[in-house]
Nucleic acid binder design. Structure first.
Lengths: 222, 222
DNA sequence: AAAAAATTTTACCATTCGGTAAAGTTCAGC
DNA sequence: GCTGAACTTTACCGAATGGTAAAATTTTTT
């Protein structure tokens, strides 16, 4: 499994996670842990947790399997680390939606931020998609607590916007789901889009931003 | 792994696929092959190909592993069989879109058929999603040939509808992708929707049909 | 430059996994 | 109710997989 992604940088490359508790990472640790996280992202996002092997990850990271296990105690540990870093970033765009701002502007900005994530961090998106499609057993807590509270909160905000006549009257939950669906689709189903348009485009996201934005402008119009 | 799905029936339950070439399936064969296909659908859709084991499948089918391998020569063979039956069905709704019909009516009917598949055959949808998210290595031929030709064809039809002023002028490919995204989302990301709305709804598809239909009515309006 | 700490390699191991051989059992047609 | 075919079970096997022990090497600190 070859991968040489440097641009855009992996979401997870500059982490500093303790090997034990709060030791001050050496040069070699930083380097190897970053390589492992990037390799793990590559492998897990392409094969899911059960479908990925430590051999694949260690090979992609350019180190031996026992050496990899010197930095992380288990396959699970790598996966947990990867997800926990991702989830914060995944939540950010929704969190940034400002109740004080203009309804249209805020929601369109949210759509745009999600489209950016989809374009710049497709592996992260697929890592997440793999988890969800397979029943989300390892991020149940995140979904039921963190994401749920934030979603409920922002759904309320959207509802007040609608009450004020700033937006079309729609179910706020389904509205957000539809944003998730349409933005993530280009990253998660990238393979399908590329294969089905092989002769017409090289960039699977080609035209996606304009299309999705124009569609949501229409949907949101009061 | 328990599963007792009888309603709706699995898309694959009434198949008659030859063990060798064209033998006339016995009673026991029909029964066991159907059980295997249903079990395989359950397991593969929940874990992906590499993440699934023959032990899981044989246990879910209620037979021993060697007995399972009496009916299918390999894990691959089960998976191929499952996918090849699914793909026909998956293509049908798009194929049914009639160039002679009314643009709005035809496209809205397409949306409705896709929503029905999502609601009635979520496992099949997730089986497909698993394949695509992981790079679609086993259905490349289908995507590049069958799906691509049909998509190109129907994109042309949509374009003539737009030229005739029956629809808003949009990129037909992105329009179809958006239908795929929004309809399949409810099946593929079912786990997320359920967890995030655990206290509010029991049916993850609750309100989805109305929402998606109303959104596409808006999008399509000239 | 010696000692201590951190890192890497070598050589394993137990379990799981996909798959096979062959004996045993059940079933359908006569 | 006998016979051949269909089906099922038992007992395996080799490869892959997650993981460990401990020796060997490199790096950092003193």
């Amino acid at each position: 499994m070859e991968y040489t992604s440097v641009d855009p940088p992996a979401l997870v490359s500059q982490l500093d996670m303790p090997l034990e508790k709060t030791k001050p990472r050496t040069r070699i640790q930083k380097q190897n842990i970053a390589a492992i996280m990037d390799a793990a992202l590559e492998v897990f996002s392409a094969n899911g947790f059960r479908g990925s092997t430590l051999d694949q990850i260690s090979q992609a990271a350019g180190i031996s399997k026992p050496n990899l296990l010197y930095y992380f105690n288990s396959k699970q540990a790598i996966h947990v680390q990867l997800l926990s870093e991702l989830l914060d970033v995944w939540l950010a765009p929704l969190r940034e939606m400002d109740p004080q701002g203009d309804a249209q502007v805020e929601l369109m900005a949210y759509v745009r931020r999600k489209l950016e994530l989809s374009r710049n961090f497709p592996r992260e998106s697929r890592l997440f998609a793999n988890e969800i499609v397979q029943g989300a057993p390892r991020i149940e807590g995140f979904l039921k607590n963190d994401l749920k509270s934030l979603l409920d909160e922002q759904a309320k905000v959207i509802r007040t916007w609608m009450d004020d006549g700033k937006l079309a009257r729609l179910d706020p939950y389904h509205l957000i789901f539809s944003i998730w669906a349409m933005t993530q689709h280009y990253a998660d189903f990238d393979a399908q889009i590329r294969m089905v348009r092989a002769d017409q485009i090289t960039d699977s996201h080609d035209g996606a931003e304009e299309f999705v934005e124009s569609v949501f402008r229409k949907i949101l119009a009061p």
